[in-house]
Amino acid sequence: MERASHPLKVMQVITKGESGGAQTHLLALCLALAPRVHFVAAIGGASPRSMLGDELQTLGIPVCAVPQLGNSLSPLRTLAAVRALLCLVREHRPDILHAHSSVAGVVARIAGRIAGIPVIYTVHGFGFKPEIPRLQRWAAWMAEWTLARLTAHMVCVSSHEMQLARRLPIARGRLSVIPNAVADTPERAQPDHAPACIVMVARLARPKRPDLLLHALALLRARLGHEVPASLIGSGPDMAAHRALARQLKLQAVDFTGDADDVPKRLAQHGVFVLMSDHEGLPISVIEAMRAGLAIVASDLPGMRELIDDGTHGLLVANEAGALAEALLALTAAPALRARLGHAARQRYEARFTPAPMARAVETLYGQIGRHEPASDPAR
């Protein structure tokens, strides 16, 4: 076949270019495969300038803005985004569309069917989990059910997401689990050093729950008689509300840093990482904390359990401030425990969540889909 004579061209499609887990995943994938795969990126938003767009351009990957692509799934907005993406498809003539995040998954699969181009859809977290509000859950279910048949292959970042995917009308041979991964960096935390500063990296919007951390910090202050310093790295629509909550709780040692392009360095300056969330796929920020060798406390959720064995690689707690405060109290009082958990988390990162296995699996999948090879499990 003629396509086999040149590198496959893959158009990555993502809803937003802001800092986030799906964006970090896409960047790690492109960084690993750019020498062998010809990438172009279509990113929702009015400008090609974004944290993700700028990073991709430094790799020599063309970046196209899709102003019509955003969080809205209104019929008119979706139709406009499909038309815009089709224009880019005609211009760049990719062999594959690879979509990330739910709205991009909708738009790319419709455009792919119209253009006759196969679409790989990486699910970073389904929108029909029980924890999601009913109307939003119903809309997400209807979209995924309808578009499952238009999906050449669906990649789930965790086994829990795979179990949800199996409820959809898609053949099991078109489903794979390929876990998230992040590239290694030299920065390492010293979790046993004092004071045991706390850090949370998250977009300040649901499903993330920085409010639980703020309440836990107030409880911790009452138990210890002093405040433990904490940093909240990330921005989002709920930042003002969380700042107001911190003032209401009279927390003086909480730093809202906003988005940062030096997260590994900032993580290494802390001893304890926290991620509280209502639901997750396989959170990149926790993998970054594992890479740094931090002691980790996280919500006890299915995706978290695939990263952390409770008590071995970190602590998993119920989604309430009291449980989080108790875990933080234990960690602040025990430098040796922080060191043990951080060392075990780093070892698990090295064993399971470096980019090479993820990139190999995705590259195999690209070959199968783009060149119509017989299906096999790309994660093997």
Rank of each mutant, 00 (worst) to 15 (best):
211 D>A: 11
238 D>I: 02
266 R>T: 01
177 V>Y: 11
270 H>N: 06
154 M>E: 07
276 M>D: 05
186 P>H: 05
270 H>Y: 02
240 A>V: 05
254 V>P: 04
243 R>I: 00
222 A>V: 01
210 P>K: 08
208 K>D: 05
271 G>S: 10
185 T>R: 12
189 A>V: 00
252 Q>K: 12
159 S>Q: 13
214 L>D: 13
168 L>Q: 07
204 L>A: 03
157 V>L: 08
162 M>W: 15
209 R>F: 02
214 L>A: 04
216 A>W: 07
193 H>V: 01
258 G>A: 07
276 M>E: 03
220 L>C: 09
194 A>D: 11
158 S>M: 05
214 L>V: 10
159 S>F: 09
227 E>S: 06
239 M>F: 13
189 A>Y: 11
196 A>D: 02
270 H>G: 03
269 Q>R: 14
175 L>N: 05
168 L>Y: 09
235 S>T: 08
201 V>R: 07
219 L>R: 15
203 R>T: 13
179 P>H: 14
179 P>I: 00
149 R>H: 13
158 S>Y: 10
183 A>M: 02
198 I>H: 11
231 S>C: 12
155 V>P: 06
209 R>Y: 09
178 I>R: 07
264 P>L: 04
167 R>H: 07
183 A>T: 10
269 Q>D: 06
279 H>E: 07
280 E>S: 02
231 S>M: 02
201 V>W: 04
233 I>P: 05
231 S>T: 12
241 A>P: 01
174 R>N: 13
278 D>W: 11
215 H>W: 05
171 A>K: 09
218 A>S: 14
153 H>F: 10
167 R>T: 13
263 V>S: 14
238 D>Y: 15
181 A>Q: 14
198 I>A: 14
229 P>A: 04
247 R>L: 01
166 R>F: 14
254 V>K: 03
242 H>A: 01
259 D>F: 15
167 R>E: 03
274 V>S: 01
231 S>R: 15
194 A>M: 04
151 T>L: 01
170 I>E: 03
202 A>S: 09
